[in-house]
């Protein structure tokens, strides 16, 4: 048993080790992306300063907390945004899925490992952005290691919740290869209900309850609220349990969906 696990781990490590290599192959875009992100952050900060011109708190958050939250959301949201939907769409349209299904590994576990690895790689890549946001845009990060720990833990679990959610969406590609629209809608929904544009606290009650009933906030709002000073570390236990429940539920559902979907596969061409 232990031997089998270790063997699996070695295989997955091989996939994980690929991520930075592939990533570096495309590094020309890193600089462009960096500049665009700073511009976005400037716009968001100006926007929220203007909103707070006539008030001191909104949804229980003061201007400092909100700006902290929004800047962090800008940095973290792209980290947990998987590209599974377009990846599956392309893979099935071009027939590459055939090759991927031939690899002797669990299809989903392999993508999960790649997704976690990219989380780490991208997090490291975002460090300069964090420094700049801290020096020029008013980002205040906590010095309490517990807040960082809570953030890291809930980020990892949350990113897996989002991964599994995306997995279910991505499986629709097996039924229709027109995934472009699906991907766009999914990103819009995930960004909004994940709390990447507006803190959940500021949403009207009915909207917030929708957001909380959906999995998207688990990957963005939940972890960054620990760093932004919006959620106290003492809430960690309850939030982790909820994340674990999401993971178990989505884990089972996504495997069932995949098993069904893959039977539908029609490999194009060749």
């Amino acid at each position: 048993m232990i031997h089998a696990v270790r063997r699996e781990a070695r295989v997955f490590f091989a996939f994980a080790a690929m991520v930075p290599k592939l990533y570096l192959a495309y590094n020309a875009w890193v600089v462009v992306e960096f500049v665009v992100q700073i511009l976005f952050m400037l716009v968001f900060v100006a926007f929220w300063r203007a909103v707070y011109a006539n008030t001191t708190t909104l949804g229980g958050l003061d201007v400092g907390q909100t700006i902290n939250y929004i800047l962090l959301a800008q940095i973290v949201a792209p980290l947990v945004q998987s590209r599974l939907v377009s990846e599956f769409g392309g893979m099935i349209r071009e027939g590459r899925i055939a090759i991927e299904l031939l690899r002797p590994v669990d299809f989903q576990a392999r993508y999960a490992v790649e997704s976690l690895t990219s989380l780490v790689v991208f997090a490291v890549q975002k460090l300069p952005l964090v420094l700049i946001a801290g020096a020029f845009l008013g980002l205040r990060l906590p010095s309490d290691p517990a807040a960082w720990g809570a953030f890291a833990l809930s980020l990892v679990l949350g990113s897996m919740v989002l991964f599994l959610t995306d997995w279910m969406f991505a499986c629709l590609a097996f039924y229709s290869t027109e995934t472009w629209g699906l991907g766009v809608v999914k990103i819009a929904v995930a960004t909004f209900f994940g709390g990447a544009l507006v803190p959940l606290q500021m949403m009207p009650a009915w909207l917030r309850s929708i957001a909380l009933a959906l999995p998207f906030s688990q990957g963005v709002a939940v972890p960054i609220s620990f760093l932004a000073g919006v959620t106290p570390v003492s809430d960690l236990g309850a939030l982790l349990i909820r994340q674990l429940l999401w993971l178990v539920g989505l884990g089972i559902a996504s495997r069932l969906v995949f098993r069904q979907a893959v039977r539908k596969i029609t490999v194009q061409g060749g």
């Binding site: 690929m18 290599k21 590459r96 090759i99 299904l101 031939l102 002797p104 060749g270």
Partner: peptide, 22 residues
Amino acid sequence: RVANAREIGAVFGQRTQLWWDL
């Protein structure tokens, strides 16, 4: 599928199982 994949190999003339950029 996985157990089978370990013991077989396949070449599809117009596709590659290798990583394009490596």
